[in-house]
């Protein structure tokens, strides 16, 4: 899996590359518009993570270039611009997803995985871990062959943890994943705890192993 990250903030670029290293992606970085153009001309990437404000040009122009040259690389825009118009403009130009900065790396990771699954899944719409299987198309989780009845939030939470398996996912990133940017308005993220508790209970009832770990006050982790 090849991923290109076009981001002029080198420190942020390094964070993303390091985060993805664990996923065994082949990561490359580009720090400017020109650099980005050279890379996408020479290689094919499964996913391009694209910043809009770049030295030497706009990420949107780069996206336009990509699509007019009939390159079908998956693109996720990461931008500080959070207005609806910006999002629509990006998606209309052929971006697959749009993530507003500042974002959680776990969220970016989940988006990349969802994109790759959509684009290259070829009918394999299942995520499995031990005896747990999640069928994406029917939005159902199974323990062995037994379906587990989950609420929408619990299902989203499970899928989010699975996308970031073996990683600590912070409560805030879970809250934002479930609730969007408006999670800021919540007085506490304690509701994440109750969703986790319910999820664990339901999975245990169906005979799953205890794969969700609580990491001190930091967050949660699903382990293989």
């Amino acid at each position: 899996m090849k991923v290109l990250i076009i981001e002029d903030e080198i420190s942020l670029l390094r964070s993303i590359v390091e985060y993805f290293r664990k996923e065994a992606y082949l990561c490359e970085g580009a720090g400017s518009y020109a650099d980005g153009i050279t890379k996408i001309e020479d290689f094919y990437y499964d996913c391009i993570i694209l910043d809009i404000n770049l030295p030497g040009g706009s990420g949107l122009d780069l996206l336009r270039y990509l699509r007019t040259h009939n390159k079908q690389d998956g693109v996720i825009i990461i931008s500080a611009r959070d207005s609806l118009d910006d999002k629509i403009a990006g998606l209309n130009l052929g971006a697959d997803d749009y993530l507003v900065k500042p974002f959680h790396l776990s969220e970016l990771n989940a988006r990349v995985k969802a994109l790759i699954r959509r684009k290259y899944g070829q009918g394999n719409n299942q995520v499995a871990l031990g005896n747990l299987t999640v069928d994406i198309s029917s939005r159902t989780a199974f323990i062995g062959k037994t379906p587990v009845l989950l609420t929408k939030n619990e299902y989203d939470l499970l899928l989010f943890l699975l996308a970031n398996k073996n990683r600590v996912v912070s409560r805030k990133s879970i809250a934002e994943h479930l609730f969007g940017a408006e999670a800021d308005n919540l007085p506490s993220f304690d509701f994440v705890y109750s969703h986790i508790k319910n999820l664990k209970k339901k999975m245990k009832e169906k005979g799953a192993e205890d794969i969700i770990e609580t990491v001190y006050g930091l967050g949660y982790k699903i382990i293989e």
Binding site: E9, S11, I16, Y19, K101, P102, F103, L105, V215
Partner: peptide, 17 residues
């Protein structure tokens, strides 16, 4: 200020992992 905040956040995520 947004950019350094985003960097701190990403580094923290790497740290807690």
């Amino acid at each position: 200020i947004q950019t350094p905040l985003a960097i701190i956040r990403s580094k923290l995520e790497l740290l807690i992992d």
